[in-house]
């Protein structure tokens, strides 16, 4: 089983993308998509260093829900900040000490931070322990850091670590 499907999630993703790209669910394309979904992971086996292991599916779905909601809210918040007066904004750099170890978890956390309220992840230290984040408007730096750690890092740690 693991020889035919070394990466089941990648196979599922490939067949979905293939069907979306052709905008059809006809039988022929499902067969063609399945062939691609089986062949590509086998051929690119060398490139994937580690297998993705999802430990807690329930938390993952809850995280995705929170994420989509936060993206929508964040956009309205950022739009308001952009339209407000420049001199009232308080930009800040903040350093977040990461507790999460898994490298996929770290990259998902960094991307989540970039897409949600007024923060963009700028730089990751070489040992993957510290993340430098720029905030558009942070009256209280420590509070923002705690919020990020509680809201995004904890669920990601439950899913991947």
């Amino acid at each position: 089983m693991s020889r035919i499907f070394p990466h089941p999630l990648l196979s599922l993703f490939l067949i979905l993308v293939w069907l979306l790209l052709n905008n059809t669910t006809s039988f022929g394309h499902i067969v063609l998509g399945s062939i691609i979904a089986i062949l590509v992971p086998v051929l690119t086996r060398e490139f994937w260093l580690e297998n993705i292991k999802i430990k807690n599916t329930k938390v993952l779905f809850k995280f995705i829900g929170v994420f989509i909601w936060d993206v929508l809210v964040a956009n309205v918040v950022v739009a308001k900040l952009i339209l407000s007066k420049n001199s009232s904004l308080m930009p800040a750099f903040m350093v977040i000490d990461l507790d999460i170890k898994n490298s996929l978890g770290v990259s998902i956390l960094a991307n989540t931070i970039s897409l949600t309220p007024g923060t963009v992840s700028c730089d990751l230290s070489l040992d993957r322990k510290q993340l430098l984040v720029h905030a558009l408007h942070a009256p209280d730096v420590q509070e923002s850091i705690d919020e990020i750690k509680k809201r995004y890092e904890l669920p990601l740690m439950e899913v991947f670590d």
Partner: peptide, 26 residues
Amino acid sequence: APVSAHLLSKAALHIKTKEIERTKNR
């Protein structure tokens, strides 16, 4: 979008692009 934002800010930090004075923790 977040990937290109991350790379851009990394590049900006690398060539020491200036931030404005009132930024905290410069």
